[in-house]
Structures are given as structure tokens and as C-alpha cells.
């Protein structure tokens, strides 16, 4: 991993639809080398996938998301890993992290509506062994996701010319 790799990662994180040719010009690297570097980053698991950041509220599909915090009794030899792996398998779970503080695991869950999210937590997550406590926070509005602000104004008008 060198500076050029870092630049490629930044470019791709911002816009994964860039073509090889565009990236070659931007990063001052030959197209073949771009392909090779990206392939290496993919096989090393540095690049996990390519996706779009979507404002689902604006898309209007009416889905509801929640942040769920869990207190978990860790398991001898495995700590939190095995229970985390089980939770991560649910399609409804969009992200899952081990965190410091009052709670141990934090996940985000999406569902068609609030009832579906609540049912998922109470029927699948809360009853699992080793889960001591849950706290569910329904997300009311997203201001920023994946480094992109959703609320940003267009910025003040710049004058058309300044020398």
C-alpha cells in the first residue's frame, strides 16, 4: 500500500463508477497499472464492494431504520465473535460493530415499518443466549451517511468572475 493506492481508494470511495481511463489521468498512472492495483486491493480485501449511497427517505420506499444496542455476555475463548457472526447473518442487519461504553454491540436494522423492526428485535435478537439487554433507537432523519451530508445547501452563490 503506497500513496498511489491511497489516492485510488479515495477516488473510488467517492465515485466507484470512474473508468480506468479516467482514473489513469487523474492519478498520473498508466491504465494497466490501475487495473493491477485495483485487482490487488480487491483480492487483499481492502476493497470490499462497490455500492451507491442512497437517500432512502428521498427515494420514498418508506423503510424504517433503527440503531440497536446490545449488552452481551462474552463467551470463553471466543469473546463476542461468535454471537456477532450469528447476528450479522440476518439480512435485516445492515451494519454491526463492537463498541466501547455502556453497550457492547451496535447494529443498524432496516424494515418496512416500525412494527417490523420492533418484531425483528424482540423475536430474533433479544431472545438470543448471552444477550442481556437491548436498546432500540428508531432513526428519525439522516443528516449524513458515508461521509455525505444529505442536508447540505448548495453553498452561497459564487460570483461568476473574480480575478
Amino acid at each position: 500500500m503506497d500513496e498511489k493506492d491511497l489516492l485510488l481508494l479515495q477516488l473510488l470511495e467517492e465515485n466507484s463508477r470512474l473508468t480506468t481511463r479516467e482514473m489513469a489521468v487523474m492519478a498520473e498512472i498508466a491504465p494497466d497499472e490501475i487495473e493491477a492495483r485495483i485487482a490487488a486491493l480487491e483480492s487483499a480485501g481492502v476493497i470490499r464492494s462497490y455500492s451507491a449511497v442512497i437517500d432512502w427517505e428521498r427515494a420514498g420506499n418508506g423503510e424504517v431504520s433503527a440503531i440497536i444496542e446490545l449488552k452481551v455476555n462474552p463467551e470463553r475463548d471466543y469473546g463476542y465473535d461468535r454471537i456477532a457472526e450469528r447476528i450479522a447473518r440476518f439480512r435485516q442487519v445492515r451494519s454491526l460493530r463492537l463498541i466501547t461504553g455502556t453497550y457492547d454491540l451496535q447494529l443498524t436494522v432496516t424494515g418496512k415499518n416500525m412494527q417490523e423492526v420492533a418484531r425483528f428485535v424482540s423475536e430474533y435478537i433479544a431472545p438470543m443466549d448471552r444477550i442481556r439487554e437491548t436498546a432500540t433507537h428508531i432513526i428519525m432523519k439522516s443528516y449524513k451517511e458515508h461521509g455525505r451530508t444529505f442536508c447540505e445547501k448548495e453553498g452561497s452563490e459564487r460570483i461568476p468572475y473574480s480575478l
Binding site: G155, P160, Y161, S162
Partner: peptide
Amino acid sequence: FFDLALTMEEVISLGVGEPD
């Protein structure tokens, strides 16, 4: 040019000497 640009819609300005 300045006055002309202000009367137009959808101008893309590469005329500005400041960061975006």
C-alpha cells in the same frame, strides 16, 4: 462579461479565482 453572465441561466463559471 460579468454583466452578461448575470443575465444567464445555468452558467458554469471557470472564471473565479477562488476555491469552490
